[in-house]
Design a binder for these strands. Structure first.
Lengths: 352, 352
DNA sequence: AGATCAAATCGCAGCGCTATGATGCACACA
DNA sequence: TGTGTGCATCATAGCGCTGCGATTTGATCT
């Protein structure tokens, strides 16, 4: 009614839940200032052993859990790395993400995950929310992104690492290998086995640009290396599954009756092709030689064991982690170290 | 020296980077207060259309990206869900995480990922950092956790969902299925095929409690259902791989020469067993029937196609998302809806 | 004893946002 | 004309922490 009311309302209304244990509570119990607690948490060595012990004791008796959200806000960069992959169901990326997560966890960094499902628009939305976390770094898959995505990332000033592909110009840093070269290796291998009617079997290549590049690398090498070679690229619009492998093999046989060698964009497809051969009584490698890609779990054990190209998702994860951690420790990557080629290895087994 | 120095230092030193576009910048450009911008971002309907348009325009011209870290701090709960799985390389969990991530992304929630590698200590550390993010929910795998982990979670007041297992008492909510029942289903199926010398082949069962429960469910059902049944549980200490499947099959044959049926804790192991049978000329299912678990990508396509139990990691992801989103919208789960049984389905194929 | 210096500790001012009421305003009612 | 109602908008007070100096302490030197 009267102005007294508004004066009364000046009484600070506590929004504080009085629940969460804060750094101040720890400080109080340990008889030091909050700053010292903060310092202890970040660089324990900078605090005297006595105070450190006191603080440690207080933390454990109170069950204090630091609030990284507050820390991130205050420090203007959160201890988070945003990782965007096409699909975590894909064993390639699962391996990389797994390794990356483990390596980053050592330094207290968290991985925030997103799947683009091979869509640039989806990726853009993911990048947008990723940046909203003021992450320590953003990790993307491949070098193809929408213009807007690039702009967003560039404007943010956040370190960006593109993985699983090199060969174009990265936004900032890249860790991976050349997909055309992988295709070329597969082609060379088949040609070295005297195969002259060959095909590349891939899935979803309209969206999966990396698979498409493996395919074109394959075709170009085939054309370049041997004049009288028949070479086809065959695409399955759906996902790269074992079943797709069967389908693709049949289509390849239809298109090239004399087919004697195939390279697959994924070991799952290769496995499907192997099964289909078995079903139809086609001898592998005598009649058809098969090269896969990925060196998945089963590839060494299947029948016949699968010749394949290992891209080393593991190593990619490690290198990405190294770049991120280096950046956090203030290292400026040199021009050379901005692009890391993890290479690929062709593992010859019984299927060729 | 004199007090003047400290007075001079009173001049506020700006730490502000003057880089990041903030909500205030948007407000200024749109000629409204920051509060209105915030309101618009959270509930656009509460703002007048005119102001809304103005704000939207300002956001896009400035390229404003909201800072979720600041938002999380102010709102005392961040738009993050922390998910901890044993391993993302495992196709089961990859599937669940993938679905969960997609479902949560719709409402602007992010997934933070951690792998426990089947270690309770690791899990505890992960839970600790997870809580440091004041997440909207924490999702764990399984019902077995260290006492400290339970305490931490309970004290935090954050909603906790345990997935991929039901049958014990969850911390809060659980979505999954009964592993002993899965084992029992496998046993019943083998028994129904007149198999009486059977084995359960599992990997890493000292750490993977869920696999161990499938094994014991299998053994118990075998014992219960038929008196003259020979039944062994065979464990491989390493990871569940195709190669482990080969090894395990051989060990099983050694221990039970009359072996005529196996159940595997994972389709990868089953595939390995299948390959080993093929190598040794053992007819499947005539001599040995094989049941898997997981219904992985290859299971329908391998030779012979694999009878397996589908746990539906997809559905688990969906239900977990539903619980989380319900909680965010203020729904209080009833006692019944706290535990969701997603069941399992035995898919009979040619291997039995 | 007094001066000097490094190490340890502390106080302050934000980080960018949201929650909470308060305020302003147009319109309808008495 | 004065008052109530409801909507749109706003000002304020933090959320819990860190970065930056400033200050204190204790040891060493002159």
């Amino acid at each position: 009614m009267d102005t007294g009311t508004s004066l009364q309302n000046r009484i600070p209304r506590k929004r504080r839940k009085m629940q969460r244990v804060t750094m101040m509570d720890v400080a109080k119990l340990a008889q030091v200032s909050p700053s010292t607690v903060s310092l202890y948490l970040r660089k324990p060595a900078a605090v005297s052993p006595a105070a450190g012990q006191e603080i440690a004791r207080a933390i454990s008796t109170l069950g204090y859990v630091p609030n990284l959200v507050a820390g991130g806000l205050a420090a203007a960069s959160s201890k988070v790395v945003s990782v965007i992959v096409p699909s975590i169901r894909n064993a390639f990326f699962a391996e990389t993400v797994s390794t990356l997560q483990s390596e980053l966890a050592v330094e207290g960094l968290q991985v925030i995950l997103g799947h683009s499902e091979y869509g640039e628009e989806q990726e853009e939305a993911l990048v947008r929310t990723a940046l909203a976390w003021a992450p320590a770094a953003v990790v993307l898959t491949g070098l193809s992104h929408s213009a807007e995505t690039r702009k967003l990332l560039q404007a943010s000033g956040v370190p960006v690492i593109e993985m699983w592909e090199i060969g174009g110009k990265p936004i900032n840093m890249a860790v991976g290998f050349s997909h055309p070269q992988v295709g070329a290796s597969a082609a060379r291998h088949l040609l070295s086995k005297e195969r002259r009617s060959i095909a590349f079997l891939g899935a979803r290549m309209q969206e999966d640009h990396r698979a498409a590049k493996r395919a074109s690398g394959f075709a170009e090498e085939a054309k370049r290396a041997a004049a009288q070679t028949t070479c086809e690229i065959i695409n399955h619009p759906g996902a790269a599954t074992v079943e797709a492998g069967s389908l693709l093999l049949n289509r390849a046989l239809q298109q090239i009756p004399s087919l004697d060698g195939i390279a697959c964009s994924n070991d799952l497809i290769a496995l499907g092709a192997l099964f289909e051969c078995q079903r139809q009584g086609i001898a592998v490698p005598d009649r058809i030689a098969v090269v896969g890609f990925g060196d998945l779990d089963f590839s060494a054990s299947c029948i016949p064991s699968l010749t394949t190209i290992r891209p080393s998702g593991d190593l990619i994860g490690k290198e990405v982690a190294r770049l991120i951690l280096g950046g956090i420790h203030g290292e400026q990557p040199t021009a050379a170290s901005r692009i890391i080629d993890t290479g690929h290895v062709l593992i010859e087994r019984r299927s060729t």
